[in-house]
Design a protein around this nucleic acid. Structure first.
Lengths: 205, 205
DNA sequence: TAGATTGTTAATCGATTAACAATC
DNA sequence: TAGATTGTTAATCGATTAACAATC
């Protein structure tokens, strides 16, 4: 479908994040690949190369107009509308995610929370009613939800994933330390603090 | 120092995780690069190549003895002792991390929690006393802590990082959506749900 | 022995970087 | 104009894969 390397796509949100910081917190209007790269620990050549996959957004001599580049990156990443998100799992991590203020300003909104624990169902997280996972499928289908975040026990994560996929979800952020089996057209992103820590201990004594 | 590619190091914890599952939940004694790869969505050639950087752990015809390979990977990754970890930030995410049961069985233990909010200091998280960040430096130095997890507001994350580094921390897991500036000998790993989600929306319509 | 699977090589594939003409 | 910085090319660097001899 797209012949742009996934590793390039992965850097665009980082560029976007820093550009917004430059614009909103430092009131800058323009920047250069050199300045951006220095702030992010990425070479200026790589930034220019990455951006060149999508068009010519800069001007020789002056660099990039920050707001224009933000606009373009948001278009490229399909962030021109807000994505409604389903959260599965209302444990400690689920609570943290549901209450996280960082989603909304960057294009996402957790709109539904599900759990299988009867003692949690009917309760509230971040102003959202905790629903039974039995209603997961019908909600996703009815609301045409495409994105989900999973924070459930290891033992049920593949079954939950299967339900999400059957219901039409196409992108999953998985906080459970397990590889998920999904069809080719479903994106999965992983977050496991322990694998990240174990990668770092290699370099320690 | 080490001429083994970081991308290889990053896969070892994934192998370790799956091997433990094979051993402990499926009571298997041996596996092959093919079986392991199939479960993880990684080619068998890559697994063999990765492992070959560190020695010859398998046997032709039979594959790998799981417990032996687990042992070896733990040695390679410096997981032969438990790493004590400092947590900075006692918000929702800090609570989730402090209460996460997945650290201990995989080599880590959050032993201290710090915050700057006077209304939180003196309180308790997961049985740990919440201390003032003013005590961060002395605690790290005294206890010789090498690893930290950061879950604080954007505005203070670089200052906290500087304190951690000055105090002797050599590995940081950063949950704050900001690139950190650290010396070369300090490892940093990032976790930002939004950049992960934004990478996936590229592939959605 | 026959089948299975390793560790390793060489080939392929892909990503990064250095350099610079173009041009604002 | 002179200085700065882009977008792009070609070279370099690095990672993955296919294939297979070795051998359990």
């Amino acid at each position: 479908m797209s012949d742009i390397p996934d590793i390039v796509i992965g850097r665009l949100p980082i560029y976007l994040r820093e550009l917004k910081r430059l614009a909103h917190e430092e009131n800058k209007l323009t920047t250069s690949s050199h300045e951006l790269g220095k702030r992010l620990g990425i070479s200026s050549a790589q930034i220019r190369k990455d951006l060149s996959h999508f068009g010519e957004f800069g001007k020789q001599g002056t660099g990039y107009h920050i707001n224009y580049l933000i606009e373009k990156l948001q278009e490229i990443l399909n962030l021109t509308h807000e994505w409604p998100v389903v959260l599965v799992g209302a444990g400690y991590l689920g609570h943290a995610l549901a209450n996280y203020a960082g989603f909304q300003p960057r294009g996402f909104s957790i709109k539904w929370v599900f759990d299988s624990d009867p003692s949690k169902i009917g309760g509230t997280v971040a102003g959202l009613n905790i629903q039974s996972v039995n209603e997961l499928k019908s909600t996703i289908a009815r609301e045409n939800v495409k994105m989900a975040i999973i924070a459930v026990p290891v033992s049920v994560v593949q079954a939950i994933t299967d339900t999400l996929v059957e219901s039409g979800v196409k992108a999953i952020l998985n906080y459970v330390p397990v590889h998920l089996n999904v069809p080719e057209d479903v994106q999965v992103s992983y977050s496991d603090p322990v694998t990240q820590m174990q990668r770092m201990t290699f370099y320690l004594e």
